[in-house]
Amino acid sequence: MRALTAEATGPHPVPEQRAVGDIVMPLADRDLQLALWMLYELHYRGFDGVDPDTEWDPLLLVSRAAIERVFERAVRQLVADTADDGDGLGHIGAPPAEQVTRELTRLTVSEGPSDTTAFLEQEATRDEFVAYLRRRAVHHLRESDPHSFLLPRLDGAAKVGLAELQYDEYGSGRPDRLHQELFAAGLRSLDLPTDVSVYAEEADAATLASVNVMSLFSLNRRLRGAALGHLAAFEATSALPCDRIAKGAQRLGMPEVAEYYEEHVVADAVHEQLAIHGICGGLVTDEPELADDVLMGARACLTLDGLAGQAQLDSWLDARSAHQPVRAAG
């Protein structure tokens, strides 16, 4: 923040020991992820007290491109490292669009509840549940906004399908049903702030990376296939966890929070079909060369969201063990 506001003349370099190229683990590097999140936020709502012109400041755009190169390479590497044997579109036969929709469906079959959602449903205390909401706020307070940047970058069925999905995300004509607003209402019901910067500032690298990857894919036209694959994987793995999280919120007496998750059970069961078949299928029918990118984006979503979920679990466990009195041995 200081680098953006400190000088009246606008953004300026600040001393930094490391060059971007020196960063070994970009996905786990909180400084890098927070810097990137802030650079992206200039394209969404910006920051109070920061000149709106900084959005297109050449120094910042050059910095963003340098960080994005490192980030994208790390995401692609992670996806390549975690791909399973059934992956790939090498086999002949079905048309590319059908291969992609089939593979997206296969990748997102539920193996049962994740540890994170099971914990939220059954075990989490109120404080632990709130810690989860604070992490997810970085995503949900800007929910669906990255994908709006994709609309002018698409044609035909993919564009129509995405517009239809976004219409539902944006409340189907009713401002009070805007999904971002449903989440904000949940936060307000718990007397929590609704300013996204509060949550970005306290978020860990994995959480920020899981959000930043959506802007990376959506703001770079070259990566539109990956952006839509990410969207499909996200929607297709949302309804079942949201059902459990809604139950957890009910258990803890948080009706407004439960409503947000409840809305996403039925909505995302629809969005999943739109995203896999209408949007990704439509895109690959029109642009078959994007098939691999669509699947890369889907895997990036599943892997990065998995890492963010693991970081959440670890932090719950750490907090619990820190509060437990150490028992004497024997």
């Binding site: 079959v109 239809e164 309804a239 079942l240 039925v266 069961a269």
Partner: peptide
Amino acid sequence: RAVVALCRCNRSDRMPWCDDSHRT
């Protein structure tokens, strides 16, 4: 809703709507 998903597997807890239970 402009588009709805109707359950076909009878495993939904929110009939008549699909709740993705078929994905488990």
